[in-house]
Design a protein around this nucleic acid. Structure first.
Lengths: 184, 184
DNA sequence: AATTTTATATATCAATTTGATACATACCTA
DNA sequence: TAGGTATGTATCAAATTGATATATAAAATT
């Protein structure tokens, strides 16, 4: 009976440790705040939350709302917190990586240089949109003031996003001009 | 009967389009040259290659070797090339992202600042090792000379790796000093 | 000289995870 | 009034992983 890993489990525990949440909240916070860090599907979220109940890692509370469907809000238990801490202490392990954009770029040698340059321009547009969000978020936190380590870590995570996006933007700009120069 | 996506299929076709390869070759080239871009498991590679035969997207050739097990080398067919090109022309779609390091960092607010700083130092060590490989690879290509678009695209992919790693290193250095300053 | 580790190679499969969809309520807008 | 969007929970086939099994031979270690 080999033990398999389940990363989703720990990430969901970590989110519940931040504050009690419903499955829908989890999906939304991942899409909005952590969209470049972690993704998770409903097909994974809801069964995992059910499993937390069974294993005593979280508790549920049905919350009635006016004009909206009921929410099932999950809170982490001491047992859940213990399992989360054990995971946090384990060293970082590299896992799967999949960058569709770079793979397509590498395989695109049969296309024209101008086609590739235009492909990169559409990617650059996405990067520029995204970096605005990072700049606004980091600036907001700076102005608001970083009072505890939770704030500091959130700030650092945003900062990485900003710095990586900016590096990719510089790379895109350089690449586009190289593709067009090379065409001459 | 809804149509599902299968990214692996296209990436394996793209690799076979570069040159004929065995399943083992594919695993190795991904681990060595594309380790920050794409990962794929044997459990996915071998069944996909078999499926290519069935669908006429690739052909197999058994190659006997002295002192090593036989290899099964797959080559892309015109039909496979056509399917690959169709994929390459489809616009980039963002898919799953999972950065375990950043998630653990965000959840680590119960640990001490020094614990977090040390966690980042171990990550920084990995980044510094990796960036050396990127610097060597890009310099080697620069010296060798970029003669066709295939070279140029490979160079650009390496350049992104280098620039992103360097941005992460700068971020790590800044973060470590902020964590230690904040501790005062 | 015998043993262990490492590299080459294909293969399988339970567990994990995704992507798509279903269902229900309510608001907005064209 | 029909369509789109947001809030919510739920399911499941298909995609993908992580671990392991099997086999041969070179290289390193005891």
């Amino acid at each position: 009976m080999p033990r398999r890993k389940n990363q989703s489990r720990y990430v969901l525990l970590g989110l519940l440790d931040m504050r009690p949440m419903s499955g829908y909240d989890i999906k939304k916070i991942l899409e909005f705040s952590f969209s470049d860090i972690w993704s998770e599907s409903y097909g994974n979220i809801y069964p995992t939350l059910k499993a937390f109940l069974k294993d005593g890692l979280a508790e549920e509370k049905r919350v009635h709302q006016e004009g909206k469907p009921d929410r099932i809000v999950y809170s982490i238990t001491p047992k859940g917190k213990k399992e989360l801490t054990a995971w946090l202490k384990k060293p970082y392990e590299k896992r799967r990586v999949r960058d569709e954009f770079l793979m397509k770029l590498l395989f695109g040698y049969s296309l024209s240089r101008e086609d590739n340059a235009r492909l990169m321009e559409s990617y650059l547009t996405l990067l520029r949109e995204r970096v605005i969000w990072y700049r606004e978020s980091t600036e907001a936190l700076e102005k608001q003031g970083i009072t505890d380590q939770k704030d500091l870590l959130e700030y650092l995570a945003l900062l990485q996003g900003k710095m990586v996006q900016e590096a990719k933007i510089r790379w895109c700009e350089k690449s586009i001009s190289m593709l067009r120069e090379f065409g001459q």
